[in-house]
Nucleic acid binder design. Structure first.
Lengths: 327, 327
DNA sequence: TTTTTAAATAGAAACGTTTCGGTGAAACGA
DNA sequence: TCGTTTCACCGAAACGTTTCTATTTAAAAA
């Protein structure tokens, strides 16, 4: 393992000179710098990151923590972040699952973006006591000068979905929820309840889901077993809708005609479903970019405003229309 | 920043004792260990990863380098790897783009799995001279005791695709290629040429693609412009087929009837296309698992066998049948 | 010529760990 | 009883950098 010491010896200079030369410090003469650099190349010198990080007390690495990579959902989010962070001189690593929480703890990162409910609030708080800034995308964490939150407008999204369905004549709804305890699912649920308390003429039934395709299929089976058509299903994400499509397609239920559904997330696959899924859309790129910007602000010692990512609706054929029975 | 020094002071022991205690070295009495541990917790001590890595000369972190996250293609691959690596006590980080090549250079990783053609062979070779093992998934790199390769059976896959189409009556083929210079695309192209030299009665035209949806759409436009139906399109990946579907669906061309196509990769979306895409399938989980196992073997100082991931065909409705004109 | 200043380099401490080689005291064997 | 071993711990060096504070040398100013 060749170190600056080896270079120093070979170049007949001190290790500090080598260090300065390697880092382009102008205090070193052009001549020695070049000599040092050429010797470094000749010896195939590569700096030791651990040693550098230890001295500098920073790594110039940002961690993005996701609970899963699945569903391609995150790729655009990550790309939005990477773009911004790279321009600021940071490298980015993406970590997932609790096997990589260690990286956060060990302060090998200069900052982190969290979209992973496996991290407890306490753990994140503890992390910030180490002076490491984080931005959270999946929870509320106020009153901490080292935490910024960039959250989805879940309430607005669900309101869109319900109002849209309501306007198309639906008065009975299945609410296919997400895993309780996660911020997004909870907010969406809360929004749904708010809607129904404002619309007592509309009724609904809650079906438990956990954001997986499998739970969507299960929900579809349940809904079929109830035999009720002309109901609108409000699914808290698109992934579950995929599972529902899989199931309904094995039955005589025609989506958009016999049974109606609206999703949330507008994942790529939703555009290719048949009929195309009507769903709630938002910009993952923006989300990522804003999160990255906020993290950079925190690193620079500023406390950015918390931000909200707004949603819109994408119309497909999965949510038809029914005529209201006059009574 | 609280360090073992602070703990030592508070516990009235030496720093070496603290270190031993923290690491569970049995040379320390149960009593002091507990005292040290409780003080550590009380002070909110967290170890400094950089310092540890510097001394230990290892980080217990493996890097997975991908050129992109897009397409959800990689999530199952990564999951296969993480499972195996986690069980061996490693943390995993996923890096993408050249902004994170630094991590490889700086030896902050104990090993790496490469599926990213932005890394040059020279760079990887240089990395191994630093005694860091790698496994490559996207190139041939033999004769290096620190490199293992786990490659896809591209030839077999393309052969499957061509033979399948041939058996269904097709004698004219469009070959929609991938980006030249990448191993997978090159191997697939080579296999196609081999097939045609064995089947002189079959003819083909090469259409350049680069594995993106956009290039698939472009290819579809070109094919439509040629006006020739009853041709089989061999697309070197599914992603491009998505673009082709998008395009064909705006024309009168019915896929599987007027125009026929087979893909490669069997990405999730392919199962939801209408008609379902006929494509070449292989197990990403296995690929990931084997890659991870090989890396662990290299770390342990063994040189594992190079491996091949075999393919199979998944039938959908995108490749119909034509009756041969008797002549 | 001598003194002052600036430029270029050297030396050494420090970052926070791990770990090797002690060391004193208690326990043990003969 | 005295030497030997074991136990529990300590001290210090080392890992490879960065960076603060000298020191040397040469050029500029006096």
């Amino acid at each position: 393992m060749v170190t600056i010491k080896d270079i120093a010896k070979r170049a007949n200079v001190s290790i500090s000179t080598v260090s300065y030369a390697l880092n382009g410090n102008p205090i070193i003469s052009e001549e020695t710098r070049e000599r040092v650099l050429s010797i470094a190349k000749e010896l195939d010198y590569v700096p030791n990151g651990a040693a550098r990080n230890l001295k500098r007390k920073k790594s110039e690495i940002i961690g993005i923590f996701l609970s899963t990579f699945s569903g391609s959902f995150y790729s655009r989010l990550i790309e939005g972040m990477e773009e911004t962070l790279f321009q600021a001189g940071y490298s980015v690593v993406v970590c997932n699952g609790r096997n990589s929480q260690r990286l956060l703890e060990d302060r090998m990162l200069d900052g982190a973006i969290i979209l992973d409910h496996d991290f407890s609030d306490e753990m994140l708080m503890k992390y910030t006591t180490q002076k490491q800034p984080i931005v959270v995308l999946d929870r509320k964490m106020d009153n901490n000068p080292l935490v910024s939150q960039v959250l989805l407008d879940n309430e607005g999204g669900i309101m869109h979905a319900l109002e849209y369905s309501y306007a198309r004549g639906f008065r009975f709804f299945y609410i296919l929820t997400g895993p309780a305890g996660t911020h997004d699912a909870d907010m969406r649920f809360k929004a749904a309840k708010d809607f129904f308390s404002d619309h007592p003429e509309a009724t609904y039934e809650v079906v438990d889901g956990d954001f997986t395709k499998r739970s969507g299929a299960r929900a579809a089976a349940y809904i079929v077993s109830k035999g009720l058509k002309d109901a609108a299903i409000i699914s808290f994400n698109d992934e579950m809708v995929i599972g529902m499509y899989d199931y309904f397609n094995q039955t005589t239920y025609a989506i958009g005609e016999d049974i109606h559904v609206i999703g949330f997330d507008n994942i790529e696959l939703s555009g290719y479903l048949n009929p195309r899924l009507t769903t709630i859309n938002y910009s993952l790129e923006d989300w990522g970019k804003i999160a990255a910007k906020n993290l950079l602000a925190l690193i620079a010692g500023k406390k950015p405003e918390n931000q909200i990512i707004y949603t819109s609706i994408v119309e497909g054929g999965s949510m038809g229309r029914i005529v209201l029975q006059p009574h």
